[in-house]
Design a protein around this nucleic acid. Structure first.
Lengths: 206, 206, 206, 206
DNA sequence: GATGAATGAGTATTCATTCAT
DNA sequence: TATGAATGAATACTCATTCAT
């Protein structure tokens, strides 16, 4: 599978650019876009400020390259989780597991693009499109399950966002307190709710 | 209903402070903290810049007052939704409906505090504590349901975050594109997933 | 002896104005003119800011009233020291003693007008004239002593400044370290140098 | 003669830093710290404001660098005056002459550090220590003279301050009126008083 | 390719002063 | 007399960006 254009920043000059991106990502994630100065990134990299401008057009381009990379990597992760054969439910289970691992592994990136996604910063439009495209992967699985009858007749669009919300907010709950995620617990809890629901069959009302 | 101390910023000088907060909230939500200048807020209010500083210590205090107000109002909404008699499931349904309405009504505030909550900005600690306290209200309902047997034995902490994530991310999905939320649809979809799950009983796999 | 115009600020509304002046003097002396805010003075007085403007035209007028009072009081002190009968040397001794006591007693005022005198603040011209007039009192005593032959033929202008410098710098040396002045010691030391000089007669060289 | 570490601000970037310091010193001396804007200094230098901040952390650091330089230069001058062989009286004569010349030459710097020394501004502690150390040079000469019997038994600490006061206040008397110092006259007057005193031997009273 | 000195537009903040009550 | 809310001019400081070397 080829790298999509999203990851372009990482491809050319694979070495230096990637190095800058990784270092900058950590700082941006830690302090936010505006609190992070180009000086600071340069200092962390041990290069002169001008060098950064040699590799990236400006601060915003550098930032966006990082965000795009985050979205790209998340999408890669999702694609990996749902590829291959299996039922919709089976794929979703893999997806939950994979995303939790990804979020913990790439806290910085996840923080950054969530912030962009639901925040009001630069280029939200573009980003929203990118993340929507990624969520399309999940949505396709759900639609597939609904179609083949293995899943109930749910609204795929909303259910996709619900699943994404369950995973991401649960994970962030732990991460934002700098705790590590209790994977098994979170995974089984989300699976139980998402697949089986929370209400006892015999007490169902409505 | 009297305002509790949480809402203190709105009480004293009820008039002017509230006016400043409401106007500023819209601008902050629209442009983000750093893109919003105090000049701009003053202009929007039709007062001199000094007036803002007469009422609030500085830009950050103004911002935090807004965030706190958002959290406070959300908590009020939740409290209202789950008060009174009823089963856990009944309360949760009211909560879903109430929160969706609240999010749409107070987009600006919700945007702002979500950004703070999962972003890396100022005073996340305090804010995280406040929102955690609010989520405690949901958690109590879930624990109550588990205890009285009306809900399955789920992990209350994670399930609370899952429910919160389902609601908030689904709502933001629409709002971030400046679309209005299709309430009935979102509500029933979330309820279905949360209460009944998505998997067809007869196709359940382990 | 009547109050001179210098002290006018203290005369009318003797009560309130004097109260404001005294309080403000301490703050100005402690923090400097520009570091002291009118708000701060008002707070220290327990009145509203507007009240100060009711009593004084503006901040600068208030400040100058204090400075003038300092110069006026110093001059009063000097006048008292050199009044009455006695030799020039006797008067100068009283002057040294009186000035040391005054400086220690009114540190705040002395600080303030020295700062104005040799600093570059507002209205230095006026102030310099005032202090020069005061030093004229000393100069007259020296001239008198030179004339009646009790003092050597010294340049009265420079010798006056020298004497003033000896006293003020010696006193400030102690005060600026927040130590109290060892009066007897300083007095006798200054007297010895000023009257008898420091060189041993038998080792005098040209 | 190499510059000692005291003068570090002038050494590194010898060119630009020194240029900024000299220009700024004149403006600060002329208008005072708070009346001088960074904009003004930049304009006088013909550089952008940012350039000043590139070379100095902030306005205060720039100011203090100037003050330190003044104290340093004065100390150098004193050291030069009292170096070499000679009696205590001879050294003091050279000191008086040297200091008068220095004060007239570096009015700006002397104004500034006197203001700091006896004013109530920033970092007086540090400055007071520095000037005290410098005055230690004079005090050592006086102690030496007392020890070898060429000077009377005076209190070295107070006498040092007295001498310093005589010189500085006499010089400032002329300079503060923008007149030039009548060197010969001031020098001989101070020498006469300091060495021989002012009282006629045959009229001495107790 | 890399540097880092210089830039200058942009902004939060302060505070003396006013004036309607 | 006294107040204190409102003002707005004044200013220190930041930092992304450029460019000569």
């Amino acid at each position: 599978m080829n790298l999509t254009p999203f990851s372009s920043a990482f491809r050319n000059g694979a070495g230096e650019n990637k190095h800058i991106l990784n270092t900058a990502a950590g700082i941006f994630a830690h302090k936010g876009y505006h609190q992070t100065t180009v000086d600071e990134i340069a200092r962390a990299l041990g290069v002169a400020k001008g060098t950064i401008y040699y590799h990236f057009k400006n601060k915003e381009e550098l930032y966006l390259a990082i965000i795009r990379e985050g979205v790209y990597l998340l999408e890669e992760q999702m694609r990996l989780d749902i590829s291959g054969a299996g039922t919709a439910a089976g794929k979703i289970k893999k997806l939950i597991r994979g995303m939790l691992a990804f979020i913990e592994d790439k806290k910085d990136l996840v923080f950054l693009f969530l912030k962009e996604l639901y925040g009001t910063n630069i280029q939200r439009e573009d980003l929203a499109k990118m993340i929507s495209a990624s969520l399309g992967l999940i949505q396709a699985v759900i639609e597939e399950g609904v179609k083949d009858g293995s899943l109930k007749k749910v609204d795929p669009e909303i259910t996709t966002r619900s699943l994404f919300g369950m995973i991401i907010i649960s994970a962030l709950h732990y991460i934002s307190y700098a705790r590590s995620i209790p994977h098994a617990q979170v995974r089984s809890s989300i699976e139980q709710v998402f697949f089986e629901g929370t209400v006892q069959p015999d007490t169902r009302e409505e």
